[in-house]
Write a protein that binds this DNA or RNA. Structure first.
Lengths: 243, 243
DNA sequence: ATGCAGAAATTGGTTGGACCATTGAACCAT
DNA sequence: ATGGTTCAATGGTCCAACCAATTTCTGCAT
């Protein structure tokens, strides 16, 4: 009967601090890289102890929203708004290979869908932007005789942006970050990513032709080549599975 | 020339605390729900101040690994291991109709892929679990003459878990949360979700038959019905698009 | 013995103040 | 210009209290 009795709010000091800080950031229109007030000033202005401010900032730091530099200050690392949703992803105990495959499966699902949506929605301006990134990537490929992570990533980002759904870019950006965290250890595959090269242009062509299913198919082929590279790398590993 | 000079690591107090704590959890074989030592004891044992312990625990709390209850103690909320990988995902905004549709597009991509993977990988135990949730959902549907969010969500969760990739469950959980944030306000569609009901069983049947593409197709049909409901709701809305 | 209200101990939350370590800017010497 | 020195600002750590919620214990009334 008495179901929706709201969970009363007795104390929530540091949450309140974060809320206030998010409001401040919005009002001051602070963006990534900008410095926010010192802990001492925040503590004084908000009428809380510096320790409480620190706990709040520690939470933001853990979420990657903020970076603290001793002796310098605290800086924004990402855009923050009062109505953000935080979802920390945790990948437990994965050896490298399992983690990489897990992120790839997410990429397979999202990149295919994003490419299809992009083929439906991309306008002239978006198409031009994607082609520009594609040209840059192909140029880098020729120059350095190999895939370049940066230009590759920028191409994919342009596709996600043109999908009209910001969540794609945000989620896949997280996947890329995780991917590259395992990646310090190049699994011994020399020409990693080489096989994926031609599919970038075919994806673009299907998008430009407003062919959703074609774009999806090409995106799937691209991911398949990466998965293949990964499996070859796993074979090279075998024993170096320390721990 | 002097490219790869890594930024050296001098101090990392609270990181060290978390590492030690993770080791402790492993050694004591603590699982979710179990209580870990009090802050005062940790501070004493680790020879650091209680403040430092608190900062470390605050980070874990922000990551959803731990829950603190004043007067009671600190409890594990998830399995932790010394080598786990965290990737905070923060999603911006999306409290309007467009945001709702955005979450659905992500769901379409991930649910389809998860259903397909599940059809490939689910073993007998996982299948039994999924069917159990399905039965519960159908029973709730009969009893209350309508879809039940909770049982519905549990069914999908079981599918994600059986997909063998923990990221699916975590990411879609974020989508559900975003979805339900807006959802307290039923868009005026009375029998929301009704149309999706039969597809739950067809999804299960395709999974049980180890038919990935069939499962994917049924999952897509399910999402399509929800999108349809949503569009009907949007038509009902029109003006109440506050803020 | 049993049940239960109130006291006491436990535990996380907050405060204020102190000091350390790092940074960056201003200044100085060469 | 280059490289050291000094100094103020800032985050990092520590300590010692006290507050607030919870749990446990105690002792009285039944």
């Amino acid at each position: 009967m008495t179901d929706h009795l709201p969970p009363i709010q007795t104390t929530a000091r540091d949450d309140a601090v974060l809320k206030a800080l998010a409001g401040f950031v919005r009002q001051e229109a602070l963006g990534p890289g900008e410095k926010l007030p010192t802990e001492r000033i925040l503590a004084e202005r908000l009428k809380v102890s510096r320790n409480t401010v620190r706990e709040a900032l520690t939470r933001w730091e853990g979420l990657g929203l903020v970076e603290r530099r001793q002796g310098s200050g605290t800086y924004l690392k990402a855009a923050v708004s009062p109505d953000m949703l935080h979802m920390p992803l945790t990948l437990a105990g994965g050896n490298d290979f399992a983690g990489l495959m897990a992120t790839l499966e997410i990429r397979r699902a999202l990149e295919a869908e994003a490419a299809a949506l992009c083929a439906i929605r991309a306008g002239k301006a978006e198409l031009a932007e994607i082609e520009r990134k594609l040209d840059l990537m192909e140029e880098a490929f020729q120059t350095r005789a190999g895939m370049s992570s940066d230009e590759d990533w920028e191409f994919h980002q342009a596709v996600f942006r043109a999908s009209g759904n910001p969540l794609f870019e945000q989620i896949i950006a997280a996947m890329y970050e995780m991917f590259h965290r395992f990646w310090e250890h190049p699994l011994g595959v020399r020409d990693f990513g080489h096989a994926s090269f031609p599919y970038h242009r075919t994806i673009f062509e299907r998008i430009a032709a407003h062919d959703p299913e074609g774009a999806r198919a090409e995106a799937l082929k691209l991911i398949a080549t990466v998965e293949d590279d990964l499996k070859r790398g796993a074979a090279n590993l075998k024993l170096s599975d320390r721990r």
